[in-house]
Each structure stands twice: as structure tokens, then as C-alpha cells.
């Protein structure tokens, strides 16, 4: 189809596009290549080897941190998605009232307040609670991750809800569906792509978090990012590259899974 005003015909379009892709992906490609380095340094490539993957896999601290990350992220993402779905329904399925915008702003607080401030605030509060209750488990990390993941899950869900035709829910109610049935058979299936997108975003954001986790984790509660940050203070080996590559693979897997699930739905 001829599209006379397509930006593709702009002079230099291809060059700029390729440059952007290059800048985005070249560092990642370099990192992945060096993860397979047989040598000991990050600077020189000495042939292909899986030794750094093996080394990482045999490092108990790394495996433990990875497992912790893979516990906190899905649990926090699930909780955040449920909360975000309810929040999105409550803020769109209502006639606008005074204070609604303020509510939405409060909900999105983690997006605008510097993360370090939230981290310090949580540290102060959680330290108190730890003294009172004696509990030092993963609950703090999960609660904190859930809280800052909510806005990331909320935004795509709300966007989806806003484009959804309200008369569909009305039609279902007209056809004898009680409120719960309307949600189960109409709202939820139509909202599902938004919920998946929200979950995915929340999952990746949680997986990636350093600042808040670093502040509030109890002794020995390293997640993969905080472990890696800790390693920077010692000597950096291609083991870091190997871990990052695995990390990248997990993120890509989650995103791909999302696209596949979404394609089937619509």
C-alpha cells in the first residue's frame, strides 16, 4: 500500500533507526559475548567457554540470590496486579468526583517520589516493626516490592479499562448477569491483556530493584541485583556477565510469554 506521507520516505530515516538500535543493543550484545569468554578479564576475549556460567551456577550465594529474586518478584507482582486491578476498576468505573485525581496521584506516588526517599522511609518503619515483632523474613521485601510495583501494574490496566466499552458491561447486566458474573465473564476477559501487561511490568520492575531492596533487606537477604552490586566492590569477573545474561534471558522469556498469551486472546 502506498503511503505517501510515511516517515520511511524521510531522508536518513534508515540511518537514524539503525543507529538507535545499535546504541540500544550493542552494549547488551557485548555483555552477552563476554559472558562466554574463556579468559579471566572483562577486557580481552580469549575464546569461547561456558566456565563463567558454570562458576556462577556453582556459587551458592548467586543461586540463593537468584532464587530469592525469583520468589519475591512473582509474589510481589501478583499482589501488585490484584491491587492495581481493583484500584483501576475503582478509579474508572465511577462517576468522577472531587478527590478522584488526588487518589490516583497517591496511587502513583512511587513514580514521582525519589526511590531513595521511599527506601529510607521504609527502613525506618520496618526497623521498628522488626524490633516489635522479631520477624525478619522475606515479608518486608515482598510488601515493599508490592507497594512500588502497584503503579506499574496500574497504568496498563487502567489504559485498557478506559478504552473498554462501558455498554458491554451494561449489556451483560441487562442479560441477567449479576455484578460478579459481569466481572467474571465480561470485564475480566476483556481486561486480561491489560492485566498481563501490568503483571509483566511489575515483575520486571521488582526483579530489577536495587535501591529499596538494599535498604530494607535483612542480613543475608541478597537478591540478584544487590548481590551483583556488592560484588562490584571486590573484583569484577566475567561471572557478572554470565549472571546478567541469565537475567536478560529471564526478562526476554517473560516478555515473550506475555506476547504469546496475548496473541492467543485476541
Amino acid at each position: 500500500m502506498a503511503r505517501p506521507h510515511s516517515v520511511r520516505h524521510q531522508r536518513g530515516f534508515t540511518f537514524v533507526a539503525l543507529l538507535c538500535f545499535f546504541l540500544l543493543y550493542l552494549p547488551m550484545a557485548t555483555m552477552v559475548v563476554f559472558a562466554f569468554n574463556a579468559g579471566n578479564t572483562l577486557g580481552d576475549l580469549d575464546g569461547f567457554s561456558l566456565r563463567w556460567f558454570r562458576a556462577a551456577w556453582q556459587n551458592d550465594q548467586i543461586v540463593e540470590a537468584l532464587l530469592r529474586s525469583l520468589t519475591v518478584a512473582p509474589v510481589a507482582a501478583c499482589l501488585a496486579t490484584v491491587a492495581a486491578t481493583m484500584a483501576a476498576l475503582a478509579t474508572t468505573r465511577t462517576t468522577p468526583y472531587r478527590g478522584l485525581a488526588a487518589k490516583v496521584a497517591f496511587l502513583n506516588q512511587p513514580l514521582v517520589v525519589p526511590e531513595i526517599v521511599t527506601a529510607v522511609a521504609l527502613l525506618v518503619v520496618f526497623a521498628r516493626i522488626k524490633v516489635w515483632t522479631g520477624y525478619t523474613g522475606l515479608g518486608y521485601l515482598i510488601a515493599a516490592h508490592t507497594a512500588f510495583c502497584i503503579p506499574f501494574a496500574y497504568l496498563p490496566i487502567r489504559a485498557r479499562l478506559e478504552t473498554m466499552d462501558l455498554s458491554l458491561e451494561r449489556a451483560a447486566a441487562d442479560l441477567y448477569a449479576r455484578p460478579w458474573a459481569v466481572f467474571r465473564w465480561i470485564t475480566l476477559p476483556l481486561l486480561w491483556p491489560g492485566i498481563l501487561a501490568g503483571f509483566m511490568l511489575a515483575f520486571v520492575v521488582s526483579l530489577d530493584d536495587v535501591v529499596i531492596t538494599e535498604f530494607i533487606k535483612s542480613a543475608g537477604q541478597e537478591t540478584l541485583p544487590t548481590y551483583m552490586l556488592g560484588q562490584l566492590r571486590r573484583n569484577v569477573t566475567p561471572e557478572m556477565n554470565a549472571i546478567s545474561t541469565v537475567f536478560l534471558a529471564i526478562s526476554v522469556a517473560v516478555v515473550s510469554l506475555f506476547f504469546l498469551l496475548n496473541r492467543k486472546k485476541t
Binding site: R170, D174, R178
Partner: peptide, 20 residues
């Protein structure tokens, strides 16, 4: 009464068919 309790059905202007 709420709509689901009324033996009355509606044909909507935009049809409001369930797309899924």
C-alpha cells in the same frame, strides 16, 4: 430494581456485542 432482575432486554445503539 437492578437491570439483571428485570425481564426486559435492550438492543443498544452500538449493539454492544461481546467481542470475545
Amino acid at each position: 430494581q437492578p437491570p439483571f432482575a428485570r425481564p426486559v432486554n435492550t438492543v443498544f445503539q452500538n449493539y454492544a456485542l461481546f467481542p470475545h
